[in-house]
Design a protein around this nucleic acid. Structure first.
Length: 426
DNA sequence: TCTGGGGTCCTAGGACCC
DNA sequence: TCTGGGGTCCTAGGACCC
C-alpha cells in the first residue's frame, strides 16, 4: 500500500496564487490567528521549529520576512478535492482512502511490486502537473511503515524526489534504526515520553522488537499490539470503507475576546448551531443528540495561566433532525443551564451526535408535511449563504453585532470558490 | 495581550439483566 | 454463617491523528 501526502499543504495552497512567495518562508495560522499550524520548508529552516502560539514567533517572523496567512479553508478544501480527484482518476475504483484534507492511503494491489517506485514517481508528477500541489509518496506493506517511508521521502527531497519505497528487510531496518519513536504515526507526546524516559526505547527499531504483551500493557491495549505488528510489516490497520458513516459533526471556536454574559454565550452557540446545521444538511445527516459545551479559564494569583475547564450539557431529541430552528429550540436552553455568572468564557461549541442518514429518519405522521417545508426553507437559506458573501441569512438568535467573533486578519482570497475573488491573470 | 478545530478509537468501571 | 457468574450497554476520559 502507499500513503500520499501533500507537502506543507496549506502553505502550498497559498503559494499557488502568490508565485512571488515561491522562495520566501510562509506560515499559515489557525482560526483566531492563535497558532501557527503550517510551515513551508523555508520557514522551518529559519527556525520555526514546531507549530505553536503565533505570538512567540513574532520577532523571528519579522526578522526573516516570513509571509503570514490566516487560514482559508474554502481554498484548501477546494484544492484538496482536486488532488483527491486526480488520485482517484489514476487508481482503480475503491482503492483510494481519503484520510485527511491533505493525505490519502492507496491500495496498490493492482501494481507489480517491482513497479512500485516508478508508479509512485509517476503519481507524484501527475498530481503536481494537474493541480500544482507537490506530494510525497511512501510505499510499504503496512500503514505505519508507509508513514515512515513518507516522512523519510520528505526529509531528503533532493535524493528521494519525494518518493520512498520500503520493501526489503535491509531498507526497512536501516530506516527504523534512524527513526525516532516520537515521530511514529500513533505515538504521541504521552507515549513517546513514557517510552523514552521510563523504558529507554528511543528508536522505531527498538519498539519493533518489543513483545506484544508488553505493548498491550503499556501502549493502550490492542492499539499497542497493532503498532508492533505494523512495524513488523504485518498490516492490521485496514483500508477504510469510504462509505462508512460519520459519528459526529461539531462546530466550535475560540472567542475573539473573552465572553462574560449569558447573552453573548447564547448568541455564539446559536451561530455554531446554525453552522453545524449546515454541515449536517450538506452531508445528508440528521442529529439525534446535541451536546453544548463551554470552556472557561480563570487567573491564578492575578497571573494568566492557560488552564481551560470544559463544562457541557446535552439533550436527546425526540426525533433526529437537521432543521436549524428545531436544533436551536432544544439546544439553546442548555446554555442557560450551563452558564455561571462571573466566569470568563474563552470558547464554546456544539457537537451533533447519533447521526442518521436523512433518508432513514423515522417518519412522524404529525410532522410529515412540515418536514417538506422545513427542508425547502433550509435549502433556500443554504443556497443563499453559499452563493453570497458570508452569512447573509442569519438567525436573530445568533446575534447581529457578534463582538465575540474570531479574529482573522490575514486571510487570502477565496480564489477558486467565489466569483468576486477569482484569481485574475493579467 | 496572547495557545485551533474537527475528528477517531479504546478502556475502565458502573448499572442493569437473567 | 453467608451474598454468583456472565453478559450487555453506557459514559467518561485518555490517547491519538491531521
Amino acid at each position: 500500500m502507499a500513503v500520499v501526502d501533500c507537502n506543507s499543504f496549506y502553505c502550498s495552497c497559498e503559494r499557488l496564487f502568490r508565485p512571488d512567495l515561491a522562495q520566501r518562508p510562509v506560515v499559515v495560522l489557525s482560526n483566531n490567528d492563535g497558532c501557527i499550524i503550517a510551515r513551508s520548508d523555508e520557514a522551518k529552516a529559519v527556525g520555526l521549529g514546531s507549530t505553536g502560539p503565533y505570538y512567540q514567533y513574532r520577532d523571528l517572523i519579522k526578522k526573516h520576512g516570513v509571509a503570514v496567512f490566516s487560514s482559508n479553508y474554502n481554498l484548501y478544501c477546494d484544492l484538496s478535492m482536486r488532488v483527491m480527484d486526480t488520485l482517484r482518476s489514476l487508481m482503480p475504483p475503491g482503492s483510494v482512502e481519503v484520510y485527511s484534507v491533505d493525505e490519502a492511503f492507496l491500495d496498490l494491489g493492482h501494481i507489480d511490486p517491482g513497479q512500485y517506485h516508478e508508479f509512485a514517481l509517476n503519481l507524484r508528477h501527475t498530481v503536481e502537473g494537474w493541480t500544482g500541489i507537490r506530494v510525497s509518496v511512501g510505499v510499504a506493506s503496512s500503514k505505519v511503515l508507509c508513514k515512515v517511508a513518507n516522512k523519510l521521502a520528505k526529509k531528503n527531497k533532493g535524493i528521494t524526489h519525494c518518493v520512498m519505497v520500503l520493501d526489503t528487510e535491509e531498507s526497512i531496518s536501516a530506516a527504523l534504526q534512524e527513526f525516532d519513536v516520537s515521530e511514529l504515526w500513533g505515538i504521541g507526546r504521552k507515549y513517546s515520553s513514557k517510552l523514552k524516559e521510563q523504558y529507554a526505547i528511543n528508536t522505531a527499531w527498538q519498539l519493533k522488537h518489543i513483545p506484544e504483551e508488553w505493548a498491550r500493557k503499556h501502549l493502550g491495549g490492542v492499539v499497542g499490539i497493532r503498532m508492533i505488528r505494523e512495524l513488523n510489516g504485518i498490516s492490521c490497520i485496514p483500508m477504510k470503507d469510504p462509505l462508512e458513516k460519520k459519528k459526529m459533526i461539531s462546530c466550535t471556536r475560540m472567542f475573539g475576546r473573552p465572553v462574560y454574559t449569558v447573552e453573548e454565550l447564547r448568541e455564539s452557540v446559536a451561530a455554531y448551531i446554525a453552522r453545524a446545521g449546515e454541515k449536517l444538511r450538506r452531508q445528508g445527516f440528521s442529529a439525534g443528540v446535541i451536546d453544548v459545551f463551554a470552556v472557561t479559564n480563570g487567573t491564578r494569583g492575578g497571573e494568566y495561566v492557560y488552564d481551560p475547564k470544559t463544562d457541557h450539557r446535552f439533550v436527546m431529541l425526540p426525533r433526529a433532525t437537521s432543521y436549524t430552528t428545531e436544533l436551536m429550540e432544544y439546544a439553546l436552553p442548555l446554555v442557560d443551564q450551563l452558564f455561571r455568572p462571573g466566569q470568563k468564557y474563552l470558547k464554546a461549541g456544539v457537537i451533533m451526535g447519533e447521526l442518521v442518514p436523512d433518508d432513514a429518519v423515522q417518519a412522524d405522521i404529525f410532522s410529515g408535511a412540515l418536514h417538506a417545508n422545513q427542508r425547502s426553507l433550509m435549502d433556500a437559506v443554504d443556497n443563499i449563504n453559499f452563493s453570497m458573501r458570508g452569512d447573509v441569512v442569519k438567525y436573530v438568535a445568533s446575534g447581529l453585532k457578534r463582538n465575540w467573533k474570531m479574529r482573522q486578519d490575514m486571510r487570502s482570497g477565496k480564489y477558486t470558490t467565489r466569483w468576486e475573488e477569482l484569481y485574475e491573470v493579467k
